[in-house]
Amino acid sequence: MKELICICCPQGCHLMVDEENDYAVTGNSCERGAEYGRTESMAPVRVLTSTVACEGGQILRCPVKTNGAIPKEKVWEAESLLQKVSVKAPVTIGQVILSDIAGSGADLIATKSVEAAD
């Protein structure tokens, strides 16, 4: 049995996940909690948000995110990859910065448009 706090919504239900019984979830108040309990116990995933360096733009950092949840154990690898990246302004919101980051299947995309500096 594994105890988890559900992060799907602010209620924060205390979940019990039975790993020996097909990851059966108890303590959840809704179906999303059951799904979270299973995923979190079998293969936890996270959306990574961070910033990359930005050249010639109005700001020095461009905010980015993975456009889907990536395996939790790939978060550090993805972060170290994006720290080496520098994008050139102009950047458009949604623009792919790194595709299939760390072999996760998700792309790293810009979450803000950055205009070129005057």
Binding site: V47, T49, S50, T51, P63, V64, K65, I93, T111, K112
Partner: peptide, 19 residues
């Protein structure tokens, strides 16, 4: 606020602050 979790009520999807 570059992290995500904004807009779940209003836009019914999870956005970052800048988005």
């Amino acid at each position: 606020c570059i992290h995500n979790g904004f807009g779940l009520h209003h836009f019914k999807e999870e956005l970052t602050g800048p988005e």
